[in-house]
């Protein structure tokens, strides 16, 4: 939710429909509520309600449709336009929305995105954001909101959405555990697991050495880079935007590092950054391929299909095999693979 023209539909199109930032200019105003179901990782379906922000609609949500709109909400994402002229009024609407939310879905998480940050001069961005955060925080004591500064023109959008999605992913602890054992087995510096269409980071693992990487924003940057690369491929090959665009991407930077991005399970891509060396690289690729069956549960179907975005599936039994011990990932090529 958020005021009309603040960029809700734009960011939804970019994250889930593979729009380019500049393509969002074509989007018209959202009328009433735009419902969409986004399949995420096979067994998780997100019910995305994109609520038109014109005042008439807003009043409607708060009065007639109040129970309909605000019950069973898992996550509320409220978007503020940083350039808005009438901040007081925006905040007043926000407070109304939050009180309705608290009334009907007390458990719902609240994410506030301060959007269109690209319109602020880079020097003053942080300051402007901090001021706005303080303002929002003061207005809403009852709900603890998590705030992000976003822009569709850079990676900040992916950071916000990755953290929104993060808590909704089922079996998260299992994924993390298995990624870690895979990482140790293949001697990687960093492993990122992406969802196939949105390229949001689902899970990640970093070795102690990889932790010293000075780029703290590298995860969302990778999402952004790969997403735009995907778009380039689709433009070149003439394939639909949402289709799979590349199957394999290798990069060896001399004696500096090696990395590859490859299709992992049906719904995920995996990025591995690792030390240089031909033999090491080739065996890691084979091992990642061999590890696929252990991650099959990512593709579902799970016993209780998640229908609403708010369902937390952690701990629910999934298709088996993932409890396996990773110490025995078959090390196919161990040495001298030239």
């Amino acid at each position: 939710m958020g005021k009309s023209g603040s960029g809700k539909s734009s960011m939804r199109s970019i994250i889930f429909s593979n729009y380019l930032a500049r393509d969002t200019r074509r989007l018209g105003a959202t009328i009433d509520i735009d419902l969409s179901h986004v399949k995420f990782l096979g067994n998780l379906t997100l019910n995305l309600w994109d609520c038109g922000g014109q005042e008439a609609f807003m009043e409607n949500y708060l009065s007639q449709q109040r129970a309909h709109v605000f019950s069973n909400v898992g996550v509320l994402i409220y978007v503020f336009d940083i350039e808005s002229r009438d901040v007081e009024r925006d905040l007043a609407t926000y407070v109304n929305i939050i009180s309705a939310l608290v009334q009907y879905s007390r458990e719902a998480k609240v994410f506030v995105l301060i959007h269109k940050m690209d319109l602020i001069q880079p020097m003053t961005r942080e300051e402007v954001f901090d001021r706005r955060v303080a303002l929002v925080r003061r207005k809403t004591a009852e709900a603890v909101a998590i705030l992000f500064a976003t822009s569709i023109w850079d990676q900040s959008l992916y950071k916000a959405w990755a953290s929104i999605i993060h808590d909704l992913v089922p079996n998260l602890s299992v994924i993390e555990e298995q990624l870690a054992s895979l990482g140790v087995a293949i001697d990687a510096d960093e492993i990122l697991l992406f969802e196939r269409t949105s390229f949001l980071v689902v899970s990640r693992w970093t070795s102690p050495e990889g932790d010293s990487n000075p780029y703290g924003d590298r995860f969302e940057r990778m999402s952004n880079i790969l997403k735009s690369w995907k778009h380039t491929c689709s433009k070149f090959a003439g394939t639909p935007r949402n289709a799979e665009q590349f199957s394999d991407f290798e990069y060896k930077m001399g004696a500096n590092f090696s990395m590859f991005v490859t299709k992992f399970t049906t719904n995920t891509y995996i990025l591995v950054c690792m030390p240089p060396g031909e033999a090491r690289f080739n065996s890691a690729k084979l091992n990642v391929a061999a590890a696929r069956p252990w991650f099959k549960f990512l593709d579902g179907p799970v016993i209780a299909p998640a229908a609403v975005s708010s369902s937390h599936m952690i701990g629910v039994g999934a298709a088996g095999g993932y409890g396996g011990d990773y110490g025995n990932v078959p090390s196919l090529v161990s040495e001298g693979g030239y």
Binding site: C233, F236, A237, Q245, S247, Y251, G254, P276, R280
Partner: peptide
């Protein structure tokens, strides 16, 4: 341990 001291890369389009 590396085959090429300079950057080299390859990728495969699905199409």
């Amino acid at each position: 341990q590396v085959a090429c001291e300079w950057a080299e890369s390859g990728m495969v389009l699905s199409e």
